[in-house]
Design a protein around this nucleic acid. Structure first.
Lengths: 145, 145
DNA sequence: ACTAAACTTAATGTTAAGTTTAAGTATCAA
DNA sequence: TTGATACTTAAACTTAACATTAAGTTTAGT
């Protein structure tokens, strides 16, 4: 039973791609990975292109894509005729989403900073201005003009 | 069967606090709310202080606290002797956490912007520099000096 | 031969904060 | 009296991306 020199078992692929073997099977079930070769005994066999694909998935995750979105990106690669503008638009949309998230967090941070600033930390809990503010019906979100 | 003038049913409290009735019971089960009065028939009866408490919870959630943390904050109010410095520290820690999250998101955004910038959107998918980059073993995270 | 690794399916657990559903009973307000 | 609301417990569902466990079988590598 010979095997091609460059073939990897799922365990080896897992190591080289820094992914769990379970996760690789999970990706396969999700459709992120297709057409996996099998040994005579039924073990999954991978080649270098799969390593590339796993790197792609990992990198895309790192830059904030969900697995569903990664699936899309991978699918696009099966349509070589299409323009890369599609890909670029996906990235631009993602940046937009990130911006919204960041802005939201910054607003929360500003609110907390204001709370923190109004408390000298020396009063008793009973008189704590932070707690007092939180008890208000509406938190005023005044902005400086 | 008389009731005090200022008593609220769970439904009324829900409306006034902009919280679901189910959620209010959930808070009770979680311990965020205690010592709820009952009518003769067993219905929960609330007064204005509960409205204040629900506002507190809502506001604390708005500024990014989890229910567990809110529980802590509420518990602190039962110890009037303690200094408000404890509260202030909690807020400061939260700000720190937010900062970390924001920084992480900004890094991701920067990576995506770089990706976007390297693609003119005119090549074919096959040659798309974004996809090419994502395929790399390691995404280089060079920083300008 | 022997051990490590892989195979299978399916379910359960993780985190957070609820929401939804069920299903039947009881109470409240007009 | 009637219809709206509330009561109960308990479980399942939601999002996201896996990790864990089970339990038994088979294969791969030395």
């Amino acid at each position: 039973m010979q095997k091609s020199i460059t073939t990897l078992s799922i365990g080896e692929l897992a190591k080289q791609s820094d992914t769990g073997a379970v996760t690789i099977r999970y990706y396969e079930k999700r459709g992120l990975i297709q057409g996996v070769l099998r040994s005579d005994g039924g073990h999954r066999l991978y080649d270098g292109t799969m390593l590339t694909r796993l790197h792609f998935i990992r990198n895309a995750k790192l830059v904030g894509f969900t697995l569903d979105e990664i699936d899309e990106l991978l699918a696009l690669q099966n349509h070589p005729n299409r323009s890369s503008a599609v890909v670029k638009q996906i990235v631009i949309d993602k940046i937009q989403q990130l911006d919204e998230k960041i802005t939201a967090l910054q607003q929360i941070k500003r609110a907390l900073s204001k709370l923190s600033a109004c408390c000298d930390g020396k009063s008793s809990i009973h008189a704590c201005p932070i707690l007092k503010t939180l008890k208000q019906e509406k938190i005023t979100n005044r902005k400086k003009k």
